[in-house]
Structures are given as structure tokens and as C-alpha cells.
Design a protein around this nucleic acid. Sequence first.
DNA 1: TCAGTGACTGACC
DNA 2: GGGTCAGCCACTG
Length: 111
Amino acid sequence: MAEKDFFERVYGVVRQVPEGRVTTYGAIARYLGAARSSRMVGWAMNNSHAVGGVPAHRVVNRKGLLTGKHHFPGTDLMEQLLWNEGVEVEDDQVIHFDRLFWDPNKEIKQE
DNA sequence: TCAGTGACTGACC
DNA sequence: GGGTCAGCCACTG
């Protein structure tokens, strides 16, 4: 893969997340070879609004918790977006997270 | 320049 | 098995 910015790689991975699926900060960080820099993934999401086209609502923490929902314009926008894609959310947590989890390491795993 | 903070995670007790 | 600690890197005051 080309030597793109760390953020660009994060965005690239998030954009590849299929509709109705979710992934985690850790999975993305691991895919980028920075498993211990998962916070940077979260930071990238914080900046994703400036880039646009990044379904940040499909990115949750490893527990399937919508930890970043408060960073969305609407209080429940993140949850609404997930519901709109067929992802069930309850108590700020993705239901059947294990089933909906989309691992870039397994789905992409190339380059 | 230094110190604090954050949309996280894994290890340790 | 649940709470605590440290590591990671970038940004802000």
C-alpha cells in the first residue's frame, strides 16, 4: 500500500465497512499495524467529520459500545444511523455485535 | 516547552 | 471476574 497518511488509511478502511456491519478501533489499528495506537484511530474519527464520506458510526469500541455517539451532531444520530442500516442498538451497544463485526484483517487482508 | 487529554486496548492484580 | 494501570500518538492550552 502506498505511503498514505495514517488518517487516510483509517478512512480507507472505514469506507470499506459494508452497510449494516460494524468494526472496532482496535481492528482498524491492528490492520494498520498500530494495534497499540487505537487512540489514534479514535482521533482519526474525530477528524473524519472534516473529510466526510467516512461512516464513523460503524466504528465502535471492542465491546460494541457506541462510545463516540456523543461526538455526533445529534445525541442519538449514531444510533439512528446504525438502525437505519439494520444494526440493532440498545443501551448504546450494538446487539449481536459478534455477528455484525466486520474485521478488516479478514475481509481485506491484502496489499 | 511541558503537561494534560482523548471516539482505545491489553495486561495485571 | 471486575477494577486499575500503562502504552500509544497527536493536538491544545
